[in-house]
Simulated scan of single mutants.
Amino acid sequence: MSFTLMLYSAADCEDTEQTRVVLRERHITFVECPVDDDPIAEHFIIFINHGFRSTPTRVFTVEKFKVIVTEPSTAELDRTLHIVAGLLSADDKKGGNDDYASASRL
């Protein structure tokens, strides 16, 4: 099992840039969705953030589990990455997971 990470971003957002830096430093693959260019993505983040257009918003998906994190500090982002690694670890115990090795480095 692996996880996917969607990064909902805005062009003029310093927190988004910091998130990109942190994710790249940790060798975490992500798909970026700029809300400035995508009205559906913009509507989605406004919906999940209770009416606020908050960026960056990260959505981690591990099978049926979704972890949504909005504007976290670097420490909060690291804790979230460990939660995702824990979800992968639980599945890894059920039977081989090559992606867990990279997630466990988080």
Rank of each mutant, 00 (worst) to 15 (best):
F65G: 00
H50V: 06
V62L: 04
I83R: 12
E42L: 15
R58W: 01
L81K: 07
K66C: 06
I83C: 08
N49K: 07
K64R: 11
T57N: 01
A90V: 14
A75E: 10
L88M: 15
V67S: 01
I48K: 09
F52R: 12
L77S: 06
A75K: 13
F47W: 11
D38L: 15
I40N: 14
F52T: 10
I48D: 05
V62Q: 02
I48S: 06
F44H: 15
T61H: 04
H50Q: 06
F60Y: 08
D91A: 14
R58G: 01
H82Q: 07
I48G: 05
L88K: 07
F65Y: 07
I45D: 00
V62G: 01
P56M: 06
S73K: 08
I40V: 15
L88Q: 11
F60G: 01
D38S: 13
T61Y: 02
V69W: 03
E76M: 06
H43M: 14
H82I: 07
I68M: 05
L77E: 03
V84G: 04
F44K: 15
L88A: 13
T57G: 00
I46S: 01
F47A: 15
A41R: 15
S54G: 05
A41E: 11
T74Q: 10
V62D: 00
R53G: 01
G86R: 07
A41K: 14
P72M: 04
A85C: 13
A85N: 10
I45L: 07
F47R: 15
F60D: 00
D38W: 13
I68S: 02
F47E: 14
F65M: 05
P39T: 11
V84P: 01
F52N: 08
H50E: 02
D91Q: 13
I48C: 13
F44P: 06
K66F: 05
K64S: 09
E42M: 14
E42P: 07
T74F: 03
S54R: 05
A90H: 12
E76S: 06
V62T: 03
I40D: 15
L88Y: 04
T74P: 02
L88T: 09
V69I: 11
T70S: 05
L81G: 08
A90W: 09
A41M: 14
P56V: 09
F52G: 06
A85H: 09
F65H: 09
V59K: 05
G86P: 05
G51Q: 07
F44V: 12
E42T: 11
T80A: 14
A90E: 11
K64I: 05
V84E: 01
E76Y: 04
E71D: 08
D91S: 10
V62K: 02
D38K: 13
L81E: 06
T70I: 04
I68W: 02
V67F: 07
I68H: 03
G86I: 03
T70Y: 00
I68D: 00
A85D: 08
T57M: 02
T70H: 00
D38Y: 13
F44L: 15
I68N: 02
S73T: 13
T74G: 04
E76L: 08
H43R: 15
T74E: 10
L87D: 08
V69N: 02
K64C: 03
V67E: 01
E63M: 04
A85P: 05
E71I: 02
L77T: 08
F47G: 13
G51R: 11
R53D: 00
I83V: 13
V59H: 03
H82A: 12
P56S: 09
V69A: 04
I68C: 01
A75W: 05
